[in-house]
Amino acid sequence: MAEVAEQEIPWWKKWLEETGEQVSFLSGFFRNLFSGGFEWSEFVRQCYEIGYKSFTLVGITSFIMGVVLTLQSRPTLVKFGANSMLPLMVCVSIIREIGPVITAIICAGKISSGIGAELGSMKVTEQIDAMEVSGANPMQYLVVTRILATTLMIPLLTLMGDVLGLFGGFLAVNLSDHMSWMLYFNKCVNSVGFTDLLPAIIKTVFFGFAVGFIGCYKGYNSNKGTESVGIAANSAVVSASLWIFFLDVVAVQITQLLFY
């Protein structure tokens, strides 16, 4: 009977309901963020879990991306006799786009799904309800700390990923040509400016917020039942990834308007 009733709800009504719930969850986050009693120790623990424990994955992926990007781009640039432009191209690509987006996508897969599964599991086993009925504030302890941790750590991971990506590019350049580290470094530094770095860092703050927010929302609102834990983790990855691409498009448009 309930299934029949559920099927009869039109998609747009479900979408509106979901959007309304997300807005309500977002307002709950900001209300709890400024209501005092910040959970510092849990925030630090989450920064460690999210930041430090993702560093290896982000680092290796960024390094490989730097190598691959350089190897793939070289033949085309050589055709035009522009192989000296290789560091510039690699650097601009990594700083502006590949670094932030790849890092955020990796974090959506690793962190957003982890948060979704963890909170979903806590919901299913009534741990969140137990916190709530004891008079403690689960939003403040579980949600605010996680969202702030992703918002802080993803920009830092991106910066570290950028450095490793550029290092990968340097090694790849030296597979076929010879270029000293100082020359490569100077070419990289001269090719990017404030207008490349700042928008890229700012957008990673939003990516970080999206990764944390969606993971928390999906987990916190998962329906009862073990199946819903998997659904929460899976939908957290899908939604967070889509939000990252959407935010990236918006960020590029704003950057174009403001800086170019």
Binding site: M122, T125, E126, Q127, D129, A130, M131, E132, V133, S134, G135
Partner: peptide
């Protein structure tokens, strides 16, 4: 909620 305690079926330990 500080005056009313609730023991869940599973214990609901963190």
């Amino acid at each position: 909620r500080t005056k009313v305690g609730f023991l869940f079926q599973s214990g609901a330990l963190y």
